[in-house]
Nucleic acid binder design. Structure first.
Lengths: 185, 185
DNA sequence: TTCGTTTGAGACAATTCTGTTTCAAACGAT
DNA sequence: ATCGTTTGAAACAGAATTGTCTCAAACGAA
């Protein structure tokens, strides 16, 4: 095989990051494979998008796991929670580079199974933010879901800043953390 | 006329806020007008989108003008700049409710003339943030374009929070300002 | 009421995209 | 070199969308 299924997936994700509405023909061209072969690997466009969306959710889940947010939340230890928060945001920055297309594309949320899993991952993150509030790491006077949405919105800002070259890659993690925690004033 | 052109525009914007990829037939149905009439008012889909995008930019420009950000920047007065910043963000919150579809739809930025105008409005806002940094209202150790992107990202968070009912409408302006200026820690 | 205008419904062609199929060429392991 | 597999190119039908056109009905002002 000239191009493996995993390669196709990776290249398709990269292409969709630049053009989220690309057709099957455009995806085929971008992945260096014919349209027929693309349909041999994936039943149809919907399955392809579900697979790509699942990869994005895999990345998100991996970030949560590597940051050990559940364990940190259970410990209720401010230091551990702080460390986990830093790792979480740093991991999300990495992930937004890889799967940025899934961030604002409303199409993804309508595919079967994806929304449920996204809700579950969001739920875990909200539980973590709640623990961070209780531990005094995050402000308790803000709705925890607003905090979660803030992270999401700031990741959109990260994606745009990197795409336009407004912030250097090596500075973006610190800048994000700093803005998230301390604000801009 | 049963439905005026302005009414069509308003209803189309409202509908596209919920379904940004709606077809001409769907827009026609949502605006209470036949597809033929829709094509009598607008040359084609592209012109319709340009008109809607222009309305969104009109709203943005009006917010900037009402907040008097240029005058505040020229004054270099921290208090005036602070007031203008509050008014700017409050106005943007209002506007994101009206023209939220234009916030993340990449389609809009590809239409002729729209991107240039958006860049111009963004440029004015960046000049204002720069003045705010010089006046000590905003931190100077953050790239001014990052600050601009942060506002954009937080508006995405505002749109999501309101759509999902995570934050009450009457609280959102204060919550946004507070998070933007002081952060979440 | 009458007459000019506007509208809606439908038909129509053109385009685009999806998904399937066929077949010859390229490939790869033995 | 040979044989079974994989691939690409092309053709095809079906669906959806866009944009145009026609014509009868509804509308509105004089």
């Amino acid at each position: 095989m000239a191009v493996s299924r995993d390669q196709i997936i990776a290249l398709a994700i990269r292409h969709l990051n630049g053009d989220p509405t690309a057709s099957m023909a455009q995806i085929a061209e971008a992945t260096g494979v014919s349209r027929a072969t693309l349909h041999r690997y994936f039943t149809g466009r919907e399955e392809l998008l579900v697979v790509l969306g699942s990869r994005a959710l895999d990345g998100w889940e991996r970030v949560q796991r590597q940051a050990a947010i559940e364990e940190a939340a259970a410990s209720a230890d401010p230091e551990r929670i702080t460390t986990a928060l830093h790792e979480l945001l740093a991991g999300l920055v990495d992930d937004v580079q890889e799967h940025g297309f899934a961030l604002t594309e409303h199409v993804m949320t309508k595919l079967p199974g994806l929304q449920e899993r996204a809700d579950e991952l969001e739920g875990r993150e909200i539980a973590f933010y709640l623990a961070a509030q209780r531990a005094g790491v995050l402000r308790s006077d803000l709705p925890v879901r607003w905090i979660s949405n803030t992270v999401y919105g700031l990741l959109v800002a990260v994606r745009e800043s990197l795409r336009r070259g407004d912030v250097a890659r090596r500075d973006i993690e610190r800048t994000l953390l700093d803005t998230f925690l301390r604000g801009t004033a």
